[in-house]
Amino acid sequence: MSANTDVKTYTGFRFMTILCLVILYAPLAVVTVYSFNASSSITVWEGMSLRWYVDVFVGPESAKFKQAAFNSFSIAIIAASLATAIATAAATAIVRGGRYKLRVPSLGLITLPIMVPEIVLAVSTLIFFNSIGFTRGYLTILVAHTAFCIPFAYLPIQARMQGIEDTYEHAAMDLYATKAKAFRRILLPLMMPGIISGFLLAFIVSLDDFIITNFVKGAGIETLPTAIFGSVKQGLKPNIMAISTMLLGLSVVMVTISHFVSKWDNTK
């Protein structure tokens, strides 16, 4: 189609898109490149090296980072699993529970953590734990993460579930399945891509969280983001860039999995 007859294309929009992608990717690309810098200075380039990756694992700060990584990942796995299970049950009640008075308030409550600004959520959780005399530590982080991960797990599950007609359960019950069996054999497998997406999203959100964790963690316990933040506050160092690049790689892997899961159709 020539430019004259094409009413869809606007000159400059392609340029803006490319600019947008450059802005999005340039900082990440630069940090990735500099994480392989042999120099101890972050400014001077002295050639390729895996020095700082080695430093992350065996360097002076390695014990701190290993503990932080363990905390981050164990919390992310447990919180995302709990949130996904809770969200799946809630989505079933919202999408398959008919019309009832509690439906809209429930939906409001479930999406509350993404409506309330994160810093407010952080402050309120801290105050709450303090007021009921909970000692801050691993458990408080876990509980807070489970709660705020619920909406992130919930939304993909709800979206998937809405796309599944209830005729499928009806057909199963018509063929002598009880409601529980219809759920386990028909609904659950059909919802699975949504559940996996929800879990991955919750996992990433938990792994990423800095603000809430920073408020509820208490002294002496760190997750990767809080450890990185603490380190950055004392100045940018090359080992932080190596950790960042590894986490970045992990995120890209996860988002790719999630992308394919959401397109994946267990019906073909």
Binding site: A93, R96, G97, I150, H170, K179, A182
Partner: peptide, 18 residues
């Protein structure tokens, strides 16, 4: 409304946690 009868039990965990 396939699971209308169980809806309160299904919502209970999210109400409790959130």
């Amino acid at each position: 409304d396939t699971y209308a009868k169980a809806r309160h039990w299904l919502l209970a965990p999210s109400w409790l946690v959130l």
